[in-house]
Amino acid sequence: MGILEVKGVGKRFGGLQALSDVNLSVAEHSVHAIIGPNGAGKSTLLNVFVGKLIPDTGSVMFNGQSVLGRKPHEINQMGISRVFQTPEIFGDLTVMENVMISCFAKRDGAFRLHAFRTVAHEADIVEHAEQVLEDVNMLDKRNMHAASMSRGDKRRLEMAMCLSQDPQLLLLDEPTAGMARADTNNTIALLKEINQKRDITMVIIEHDMHVVFSLADRITVLAQGTPLVEDTPERIKGHPKVKEAYLGESA
């Protein structure tokens, strides 16, 4: 039984069958990549996981609990964190404040009216946030305005925000999209470390095969809304069906 169990999920947008009969099982502590050509339904599937979309059929269970119909903040509180394709951070706030917000969400839950406490006096939150920033080598940037950072740093900050919540499952939507090769390699190293040191299960949606093959334990290939194959990276590499999906019938 995996930590994330997807059974028979289908989603239709008007005349387009975006997903049909998707079955997927993500094993705990693994890195599971979902790849596929453009329009295969990868992002739709991710949006189902985080509560942004409700599928027409099927079920999505996380740790034995259904995530369907829950709001994004409820799904986060269950232990699922998400990294976006373009880093979503609090641009007007400092790096430290960004991470502290995550820490508060983890400690205090979805809503707490702490209007007469002082952020600077919350020693446990400050300490925790500093620790996380140090883990991702960003402590020197703690007072920086988040919007003024490079894209690589924004991604790293977003990752730090997710890590500070110690999630059980981390969903990554093309974490290296638009990055230079050096940044990409740094991100791969960071993700590997997160997976091994912290034992966080990851689901990655990715175009870049270099990233997928250096990280994933298991790969699902999605094409036209259906999983084509699910296997280890070694076997996926030479799989005829995968070649066909990516390069067309004649290949």
């Binding site: 986060n76 979503e88 951070i89 609090f90 007007d92 706030l93 917000i101 969400a105 839950g109 002082t118």
Partner: peptide, 24 residues
């Protein structure tokens, strides 16, 4: 200066991120 105030400022900056960070 409170955590509540910090959340309010976060709402102004990026409500999507706040929702996915577990805040209602």
């Amino acid at each position: 200066r409170s955590p509540f105030g910090l959340m309010l400022r976060a709402i102004k900056t990026n409500q999507t991120r706040l929702n996915y960070t577990g805040i209602n």
